[in-house]
């Protein structure tokens, strides 16, 4: 059971938002682990990390800044923006008509494909 608790604690993210919103909950579990003697053999929490996602180190994060050249390109890119009206006029020219489409809920009747498609 100790192992279970250790794994459970390692799944609790100590992010800012979580800590602000539920720090009491996290702290309660952490104190609980201490009370039960868990943690003496605690494996590195990284072992429970989701596969394929790596962490962001503090050092590169501290140096991070937008690229000046890229920022110039963003300005150019934003100059090409299309308004709602321009988009709607383009759609009309291309014969596009917006239609209400949804996914059928599970268990309801599904749309059958047309012949030949």
């Amino acid at each position: 059971m100790r192992i279970i608790l250790v794994v459970l604690l390692s799944c609790l993210p100590p992010s800012a938002a979580l800590a602000q919103n539920s720090g009491g909950f996290t702290n309660m579990l952490r104190s609980l682990s201490g009370a039960l003697g868990a943690g003496k053999d605690t494996p590195p929490p990284a072992e429970t990390a989701p596969i394929g996602i790596r962490g962001i180190d503090d050092a590169p994060a501290a140096k991070a800044a937008p690229s000046p050249a890229g920022s110039n390109d963003i300005g150019r890119l934003e100059g090409w923006a299309a308004s709602r009206g321009e988009a709607e006029r383009m759609a009309a020219r291309h014969g596009l008509v917006a239609r209400p489409v949804v996914f059928a809920e599970a268990g309801s009747e599904v749309v059958k494909p047309e012949a030949g498609k």
């Binding site: 390692s10 993210p13 100590p14 992010s15 800012a16 979580l18 800590a19 602000q20 720090g23 590195p44 929490p45 990284a46 429970t48 990390a49 989701p50 996602i53 790596r54 962490g55 962001i56 180190d57 503090d58 590169p60 994060a61 501290a62 140096k63 991070a64 800044a65 937008p66």
Partner: peptide, 28 residues
Amino acid sequence: LLVAAGASALSVSSKSAGSEDLRKRLLA
């Protein structure tokens, strides 16, 4: 962020991480 916190026992909350910190980390 979860992995970073787990790997280094880093408590983001202890550094008062806010949106600026999130932004920097994403940029990184």
